[in-house]
Design a protein around this nucleic acid. Structure first.
Lengths: 193, 193
DNA sequence: TAGAATAACTAAGATCATTAGTCACAACTA
DNA sequence: TAGTTGTGACTAATGATCTTAGTTATTCTA
């Protein structure tokens, strides 16, 4: 047999993403993806540099999707409202795209994989702009963005892995947690006027 | 050959923990642990229920170590000072014991594995006590503890996986992030007086 | 249309987890 | 003390998974 299936790189990424989102990132094996596409595992190496290459593509794809999600979430909003909307969108993304979400970490070093590094940085830049538009100086914004990122990532990771114990009142906890960070951001904004 | 090596369960856990902390949790394979102990891989099944059983033991071991770490961190401290000390201790734990830290997630359900569930809950209870001693009502403390856990976990996970990009000013970011949550906790405490 | 590139394949090997069955030694018991 | 029993090691074998090497048929292109 020579070529027959005519599989594109998009097919591979899409299939891997679907499996990862529905059954977890670790379920998106080369074997599973190949099986779903109706080809043999080694044939995937014509499209992708092994399992690590496929993971990397998932991360790029996921970053782009997350960026669009954030852009939509912000829309015309500004300041605290924009941040709250981003937080909700991030949580929804983590629920709808668990596999893609998990593919983001570990992050690459900028000199190792510039394309992925920048793709992953884009959503962060978007949030950074919101803070800068609030009048927060760059030197402070760095810490506040890291705080927000840490809280969101930690919450969504713990929630997905059922690390909170009793799943009672998690929605309220999320809102309260986000508000807490945003309150800090607003205070910083007020002090910079 | 019959019995010869005389390996104990503690040996297995200790060896696995050492490998996991120095080379990552995923490096703590049955093969690697057996090799380090000088026995064949299948012999480990006399001590441990496969790789999942070994992971579980790591989580129990790690939880107990984390509990002692938190107890030492608190000492005679109270309120915000105790919380700040816990945060620093948690970060140090994540650095010194990456493998054990990673073994905590995913968390078990209480009815699936009561022993591990409770071991993992202990450090959380300790933090809960600090908040309750500050006069924060239980209903609010739940959300605040989750916020603190989320922030710490998210920060330490991102930091370990180099998710922050440029590793500049991370210490300051950590302190600022923790202070932000603690400020919220102190406000809640003040409002409950 | 002939050659080159592409994208499938088979074959083979490495690592890891796992199960089943075996066997020697040590400890317990009669 | 002598026999029995249980523990904890072993070998053998299987199944995932990833990976490399080499092959071949199809498709694209010059």
């Amino acid at each position: 047999m020579g070529r027959k299936a005519g599989i594109t790189l998009e097919d591979v990424v899409e299939t891997a993403a679907t499996i990862a989102d529905s059954h977890g990132l670790e379920a998106a094996t080369l074997t599973a993806v190949a099986g779903e596409l109706g080809i043999k595992t080694p044939s995937l190496y014509n499209h992708v540099k092994g399992i690590s290459g496929m993971r990397r593509l998932l991360a790029v794809h996921g970053s782009q999707l997350l960026l669009r999600t954030f852009e939509e979430a912000i829309g015309d909003l500004e300041g605290a409202e924009a941040l709250r909307s981003i937080a909700q969108a991030d949580r929804q993304f983590a629920r709808d795209h668990r596999g893609l979400y998990d593919s983001f970490l570990p992050a690459p070093k900028p000199d190792e994989d510039a394309e992925l590094y920048e793709a992953m940085a884009e959503p962060v830049f978007l949030v950074a702009h919101v803070l800068l538009d609030m009048g927060i100086p760059q030197s402070e914004a760095i810490h506040l963005i890291r705080a927000l990122r840490a809280l969101l990532h930690g919450f969504l990771d713990l929630e997905a892995k059922e690390g909170f114990g009793m799943p009672i009142g998690i929605d309220a906890s999320f809102d309260a947690s986000v508000d807490l960070i945003i309150a800090g951001i607003e205070t910083a904004a007020a002090n910079s006027k």
